[in-house]
Design a protein around this nucleic acid. Structure first.
Lengths: 137, 137
DNA sequence: AACCAGATGCAACTGAATTGCATTTGAAAC
DNA sequence: GTTTCAAATGCAATTCAGTTGCATCTGGTT
């Protein structure tokens, strides 16, 4: 059983061709993938709605996490191993390329401390950056 | 001439009722405003397309800046005085409320340093947070 | 082999945002 | 104050990401 199939059974999801291919496609990319990108890769082998639902399900189970690009379009990337349904490990930097619009999940050593005004309850801090990615440069 | 009218002439924009009202509406709010919120405030006094165009124009001129909510919907807030067409002062924290989905621009004292992998060119770092705002708490 | 909850495919729909084009208007020139 | 015109507005139609309803199919268990 490959890694994709393992991830699925581990989270109580049926091991279907679509989900396996979605996961292995993400493994091969170093940027977060959009629905449109996946649809292109499937090239008619899966309905667009099925892909939307596969992505939503994978996110709900904590297998992938969702990030909105600067263009407002959702992208998805594999979570780290220690992600759970209840806690996603988002302690990384999302780098937004202003040329290709791709989003990259990059490791970051130290995370900033932030103190909010009175009355604001903090649940998560996220760091993001934008510029030009190594591929577009 | 009030502040809204001044901002417009300062940036070479016509001083129209719609733009003045959009700006003064933003001044009164402490969160970034969405198109839907504006449309409600205008209550038929301006076409929805006109509002979209007003927001785009104000952003292009550096009078307001745009931020995407967690829901993927654009919101706009007045820039600090030192924003220009070429450089927006985004050195603040965007706080996303998970209840009302409003976005708040909050001041932040120290900004984190980040070093990217080779080949990535950084142009801007942004800090965002999510949780519950003071109003929803 | 039988079963069924969950996954898929197809069609229709929603909602944010954009585009084209005719009309109106702010503000500068006269 | 009148003329003038680029810019702004209003209206209709369109685009595009994402969702929903429902019938059919299938992975995995019995």
């Amino acid at each position: 059983m490959d890694r994709s199939a393992h991830l699925l059974s581990e989270h109580g999801l049926k091991n279907t061709p679509v989900r396996r291919k979605v996961l292995s496609f993400m493994e091969e990319r170093k940027h977060a993938v959009s629905h449109a990108e996946l649809e292109g890769a499937f090239n008619g082998d899966a309905d667009r709605v099925t892909l939307y639902r596969a992505l939503n399900t994978l996110e709900e189970k904590g297998i992938v996490h969702k990030v909105l690009g600067r263009d407002g379009i959702a992208r998805y990337a594999l979570c780290q191993d220690d992600c759970t349904v209840h806690r996603h490990d988002d302690q990384h930097l999302h780098f937004h390329c202003n040329t290709c619009m791709n989003v990259f999940c990059l490791a970051v050593d130290d995370y900033p401390e932030v103190n909010l005004p009175a009355g604001f309850m903090l649940s998560k801090i996220q760091l993001s950056a934008e510029g030009i990615c190594d591929n577009c440069k």
